[in-house]
């Protein structure tokens, strides 16, 4: 069993008839009354066969869940306001399972069939409302296999899977200038302080911020401005620069600045009241900055 997985044991599986099951029970009563009233042997047999089938189906319903192993894989980090995506994985150590459903806060995920000794993962999208760690919501596994007259479900399982939610980046109009080392604004720094290394052919995926619009306007084709390590010209994205805003808004603005700086290919550092990340480049640095912002807790005053 994979670590962190929960095996669905018989004690955590509950079974009750569905509303169709109650209807079926009504049918059985009607059949029995007819059989008794007409003292008809075959009517008795039919009634008891269907009653037996309902009983057997209870077992099948339970067996359809019993022994399944539930794991959840946390998804990639998302920004607040987007949807976090967990992978709910069910491993089947035994016989074929059919129409197993994952329920989550009233949300029914599509039913899956799991072949013997195989596993299936179902994406579970959850709205990421706030920055920080988003725990996977409690999951319930259910099934109404095989006849729809009985439903088995498990107790709600909270699994240790979480997804990092970055602060929602601030909009353009919220944007204030980024302060470079010294007094110039970041926008200025981009033009004056960068060590421009020349132009190279545009490649897919290059940031639009680095496209050489001048050469394009001159009709010389699409080029990307290539910046070499702008040594000594580090950009600091600083908490203090966004003083007029609330802490959350500041974090949103900082996030936006990190994204912009990263897109612009700047070497940037992040400075928060209780921590700082030295200027650096690259995806890992960006992720570290965003994570710091996501998990930032304002010092209690």
């Amino acid at each position: 069993m994979t670590p962190g997985a929960v095996a669905l044991g018989s004690r955590s599986i509950y079974i009750l008839p569905t509303r169709h099951g109650l209807l079926f029970a009504l049918l059985l009563v009607a059949l029995l009354l007819a059989a008794v009233n007409y003292a008809n042997a075959l009517a008795y047999l039919l009634t008891f066969l269907l009653a037996g089938m309902a009983m057997v189906s209870i077992l099948h319903t339970q067996r359809n869940l019993l022994g399944l192993e539930l794991t959840v894989i946390g998804g990639d980090p998302v920004f607040a306001g987007e949807e976090a995506c967990f992978q709910v994985c069910l491993r089947n150590p035994g016989q074929q399972r059919t129409a197993v459903r994952v329920e989550c806060d009233g949300q029914l995920l599509p039913a899956v069939d799991i072949p013997p000794r195989d596993n299936r993962c179902i994406p579970l999208a959850t709205p990421a409302l706030r920055r920080g760690w988003l725990d996977c919501p409690a999951l319930m596994i259910s099934t109404h296999y095989p006849l729809g007259i009985t439903r088995a479900w498990t107790r709600r399982h909270r699994l240790a899977a979480r997804c990092l939610v970055y602060p929602q980046p601030a909009d353009d109009r919220d944007l204030l200038p980024i302060v470079a080392d010294g007094t110039e604004a970041a926008g200025v720094a981009l033009h004056e302080g960068d060590e421009f290394a020349g132009l190279r052919n545009y490649q897919n995926g290059d940031s639009p911020a680095r496209i050489s619009w001048k050469t394009l306007a001159r009709g010389q084709g699409l080029y990307t401005k290539d910046f070499r390590q702008p040594l000594g010209m580090d950009v600091w994205i600083d908490w203090e620069e966004f003083a007029p805003h609330t802490p959350e808004m500041r974090l949103r603005l900082l996030t936006r600045a990190v994204l912009d700086a990263d897109a612009a290919g700047l070497r940037y550092g992040l400075r928060l009241p209780d921590s700082a990340l030295d200027p650096d480049l690259g995806d890992n640095h960006r992720a570290a900055c965003l994570q710091t912002l996501a998990l930032y807790e304002a010092p209690s005053t």
Binding site: A39, Y44, F48, L49, G52, M53, M55, V56
Partner: peptide, 20 residues
């Protein structure tokens, strides 16, 4: 499969259910 598995239960009920 369900019907076949129900047959033993059916027989027991058929034999033991009190007849009026």
């Amino acid at each position: 499969r369900l019907l076949v598995q129900a047959v033993p239960l059916m027989l027991v009920m058929y034999l033991l259910f009190p007849r009026i």
